[in-house]
Structure formats: C-alpha cells, structure tokens
C-alpha cells in the first residue's frame, strides 16, 4: 500500500449498485487518502462511472457505506455532498448550455463564494464570483470565450469549462470521469499540466483510459472489471500485474 493509506478522506465500504439483474458495482471497497491521486481504470462497462455516481451522490447505493472526512454520507443527496467538498467532472461534459462560459463558472462557484451573501452587492458579486471565475477560465485557456454561450462551445472547450467549474467549487475531492476523452493533443497536454499543478489539499479520483496520464499522475491505481475490484496498488505494481492484463484482454476480445 502507499504512504497515503493512513488518513482516508473517502472510504467506500462494500458498495453495491444494481440495474435490474446487472450488478454494475459489486461490493467495491475504495479508500482515497487526503491529498492522494487515485486512478480508477478498467474496460468499458466495468462500473467506473457508476462508482463515481455513487460517491458523488447522483445515484444511491443498494448496499454498503460511504464515508467522507470521517462522516457517513451514504444518505446525503448530491447537492449536500457537493457543499461538503466533493466536486465532479462528468464523462460527457455537463455544462449549462444557455449560460455563458463565465456564468457557468459563477454558478458552479456559488457556494464557495458564500451563496446569496456573496452576491448582495454588485461589487461583491464581481469580486467574489465574477473575477475568480474569469481567472479560472484563463487557467483552462477559455478566457477568449468567456462571454460565449456554452451551447456554442466545442466539445473540448466544454470539457475545459467543466474543469474550471469543478475547480470553482474548491472541492477537497475531485471526481474526474475520463477528462481527456475527445480532447486534442494540445488540450490533453494542458489538462495534464493542470492536474499536476493541483494543490495537495485536493484529492483526486481519476477515471481515465489514457494510461500515460494515469501513470504520470497517480499514487495509487485501482482496477475494476465487471463491477468488481480486481486489484489496487502503486502504478508500477499494476502495470505488470497479470490480473490487469487479463481483465483488459478479456474486454477487448
């Protein structure tokens, strides 16, 4: 195990999620330590997205418990979990299409900026929400399209926008679902840099097919297959583990 195993920020204990007779997530145990970069890999249909849904609260578990920061959050809704520090990027970029890019970031950072108190005056709105949102857009390379309606952004831009939105919420745990999918080479490069630069007070749970990104970033890699946890360990162990090769080989067929 890694050096991070001592203080878990997130613990999933034997979580289960069923869709009819299909067990999408089957008694999976997962620990993400404070500051850890934890990657979740596995073939399509392994249950990675479902597991992130369970942790973020978008779907409820059919069994097991989830703890975050020492507190049982199994019964909390997604909004509540977001407010206590779980941020999320979705597999298909989920932005608000009728809002402009900067408005998307503003709405995403709303609670971080003090909610309705943060917008009581125009000056406060600008200082607490609008300016930080612009800074974040700049960081992900979207400053030029800040006033463009999100519906008119390209797939890659929407992906970057959602990253800015997730960061605006200042999460303690960032759930990333295939952030590199559909990005151009330049965009992937920028994404890798952005993730590498994240401060260590943000823990990351990353689902990604690009194994170069995974191995460059992760402290721990967990492999899922058919809803079950195959193995978990440091990148070097995982790279050569026969169980992992089998899982992927089977999926490719």
């Amino acid at each position: 195990m890694t050096a991070f195993a001592t203080t878990p920020l997130l613990t999933a204990e034997a979580v289960v999620r069923r869709y009819g007779s299909l067990v999408a997530v089957d008694r999976v145990d997962l620990r993400v330590a404070d500051g850890e970069r934890h990657a979740l890999i596995g073939p399509n249909g392994a249950g990675k997205t479902t597991l992130l849904d369970l942790i973020g609260g978008a779907t409820r578990v059919d069994g097991g418990r989830i703890r975050f920061d020492g507190r049982d959050i199994t019964r909390l809704g997604p909004a509540r979990r977001a407010r206590i520090g779980i941020g999320r990027i979705h597999q298909r970029p989920a932005v608000w299409p009728s809002l402009t890019a900067v408005e998307n970031v503003v709405v995403a950072g709303w609670h971080q900026a003090g909610g309705f108190r943060g917008v009581r005056t125009r000056a406060r709105y600008r200082r607490r929400l609008r300016e930080p949102a612009m800074a974040l857009l700049d960081r992900v390379g979207l400053a030029g399209v800040a006033s463009t309606t999100a519906a008119h952004l390209s797939h890659g831009e929407r992906r970057q926008l959602e990253i800015a939105m997730a960061l605006a919420g200042r999460p303690r745990l960032l759930l990333l679902d295939e952030p590199a999918a559909g990005l151009s080479g330049v965009e992937v490069h920028r994404l890798a840099e952005l993730l590498a630069e994240l401060p260590r007070d943000v823990s990351v749970l990353l689902v990604e097919h690009r194994l170069d990104l995974v191995y460059a970033l992760a402290d721990t890699v967990t492999v899922l297959h058919d809803g079950r946890l195959v193995t978990s360990g440091e990148p070097d162990e995982i790279r050569n583990a026969p169980a992992v090769r089998r899982a992927y080989a089977e999926a490719v067929r």
């Binding site: 978008a58 909004a79 977001a82 932005v95 608000w96």
Partner: peptide, 25 residues
C-alpha cells in the same frame, strides 16, 4: 437579471448538474 436568475436557468438547463454544484434546486 440578477445572479439569482442564473440559478434558475441553470436548474432548468440541467437539474442534476446544478445539484452536483451544491445547489438546492
């Protein structure tokens, strides 16, 4: 036209996403 209007439009656009950002839709 105030920022509060943004919350309403965001909730209409994508309710689940709005909740995922911590909003009490």
């Amino acid at each position: 036209r105030t920022p509060a209007g943004l919350l309403l439009r965001a909730s209409r656009d994508d309710e689940a996403r709005t909740r995922a950002s911590g909003h009490r839709v």
